[in-house]
Nucleic acid binder design. Structure first.
Lengths: 195, 195
DNA sequence: GTCTATAGTTGGATAGAC
DNA sequence: GTCTATCCAACTATAGAC
């Protein structure tokens, strides 16, 4: 089915040019079909865009679950630190992360509500899973902190901060940031109680 | 001069709709002039856009210098922590921060090189000033860390991470992030040597 | 500098033959 | 499902009167 090919190429165009910057004519050209043919697969540009949004977030959700399952028996530190390598890989392989960030930060105004109804549950789920993870580790004595939620929030902040650099500065600067910021985060998160 | 009014209103349109999403007709309408009048002030859309870019980054550079001068005699912790309130204020007052982030992360492809020739020196200057600041404080004994550069990088990562939330999640979620992530950063940065 | 009028292009979307 | 042909709306940009 060429619906899939259209969707995949549209993803890369939306990721690199944004919603307004992407043109159905250019997408069709790269797919190897004529523009009107898109309309026999999708209702229009909005429908195509929202299909890509749903696809990307579903894909990302599954990938994250797979990651956590793949390192279920490892210590917490390994799990949390491994994310950064995992992010780098996912970013290199496709335009999904770029699309994800662009859509999250600057969604097309007309589709704001519909986009946020997909983005927000995704982020909330991320945060819930993370807190669960930290709580579980705390019980097992792997991790000592009275402020599990604060650590979770700081960790998400760290991820956003390095993602920004991955998106913008490239791999090398990303790795430098991860190295520097992770160590300080981890030390700060493991301070023993008492101010 | 109405060049300024055009520039300021264009700034808000570019910030909220992106380069492609902003229309000269809408900008002119809000200014209270007709569209062709813009062409007697700017060569075209590209020229207007790049004028806004130059203006915003120059403005931001000056604002940052002013901030650091305003708290020159304060302890390092106060300086670094004060940035977060300062960011929040600047973000609320205008669309400059939104524009700055949008342009930095997702510049219009056709103007990529020209934009980056403005963005990169700006960021490099930020990082240089920060390292200078940390080095100065280290000499005065305010701050103990063997890894000044790592702290600087982690601090910039922290700023990006909270800015993302300011842009996307709003003031309240921003403040929560700042509270949680700053404490962990500061503790981690001030760990005594060893390990 | 500001306008009216308009050129020239490109965008999304539809009708209808095959 | 795919095409050709076409429509209409919106955009940037320019010409020329005032």
């Amino acid at each position: 089915m060429s619906s899939i090919k259209i969707r995949d190429i549209a993803l890369s165009h939306f990721a690199n040019f944004g919603y307004e910057g992407a043109a159905l004519s250019k997408i069709a050209e790269e797919v190897g079909i004529k523009k009107p043919t898109i309309y026999s697969h999708y209702k229009g540009k909005d429908d195509l865009f929202l299909s890509v949004v749903r696809y990307v977030f579903q894909l990302e959700r599954r990938r994250i679950l797979e990651y956590f399952q793949s390192c279920e028996d490892m210590p917490l530190k390994t799990k949390l630190q491994g994310i950064f390598y995992w992010l780098e890989q996912g970013f290199a392989e496709s335009d999904t992360t770029k699309f994800l960030l662009r859509v999250s930060f600057f969604p097309p105004p007309a589709l704001f509500d519909e986009v946020m109804n997909i983005v927000n549950p995704f982020l909330d789920g991320m945060q819930r899973n993370l807190i669960k993870l930290l709580n579980g580790a705390t019980k097992q004595g792997e991790f000592s902190s009275q402020h599990t939620e604060a650590v979770a929030i700081a960790y998400l902040t760290l991820i956003d901060g390095v993602l920004v650099e991955l998106l913008y500065g490239g791999k090398q600067r990303y790795q430098i940031r991860v190295e520097a910021a992770w160590n300080i985060f981890w030390q700060g998160a493991n301070i023993e109680e008492g101010k």
